[in-house]
Simulated assay, not measured.
Amino acid sequence: MRLTKKAAGFVAAAAALFTVAAPAASALASPRSTCYGGRVCLYAGFDYNRGQVDHWRDFVGDDANFADNNWLNWDFSNSWQSMDNDTSSVRNRIGCSATLWQHPGYTGAHSTFTHNSNDGFLANNAVGDDRASSLDIWCR
């Protein structure tokens, strides 16, 4: 089947529209809006990164040293930015309590978050803003 110039132009325009719309749709599915069950989600920005660079990370187990981890971007790619001493908000969906610690190895000031709790402003907690270096999950 042969396409007329008008039909070929329509097909090209539709393809271009899909190419532009696809990344926008991915941005709407940003992890900042959801923290799935069975995970503790940490965010680099206050209020789960709303209006800020969307760096996040989710955990299903303990992590004794955040210096080994980089933030993820909204599209799940590596941001190449260390998450050590850079957490500003947390959501806990793991099913038990989780504790953020100020220093590696679960030491220093700490704040514990019960299951289904959120805190979009860690500056008002003992662990503080941009000070977390380890995560201990208490499902034992």
Rank of each mutant, 00 (worst) to 15 (best):
M1F: 04
G9L: 00
R140F: 05
Q81V: 15
H55I: 03
Y106S: 02
W71M: 03
C139V: 14
V40I: 13
A13C: 13
K6F: 11
A123T: 02
S134D: 11
Q52S: 14
R57C: 07
K6R: 11
T19Y: 05
S30M: 10
Y106N: 01
P23D: 15
L122K: 00
Q52M: 11
D136E: 08
R57I: 13
N70H: 08
G120C: 08
D54M: 03
A27L: 13
A67T: 12
C96A: 09
D86I: 03
N125I: 02
P104V: 09
Y106T: 01
C35S: 07
F46D: 00
Y43M: 12
D129F: 03
L3S: 03
F46I: 07
S117T: 14
H110F: 07
T87W: 05
T19Q: 08
A7K: 06
K6E: 07
N70W: 03
C41I: 07
T99Q: 12
L28S: 06
D68F: 11
G105Y: 10
S26Q: 14
H110T: 10
C41H: 04
V60A: 06
L17F: 13
N69E: 07
D129W: 10
Y43N: 10
A29N: 06
A64C: 04
D130F: 12
D68V: 08
R57F: 05
A44Y: 01
F18L: 13
C35P: 03
S33F: 13
A21F: 06
A12Y: 02
A29S: 07
F121P: 01
T87D: 06
R140Y: 09
L100W: 00
G61L: 04
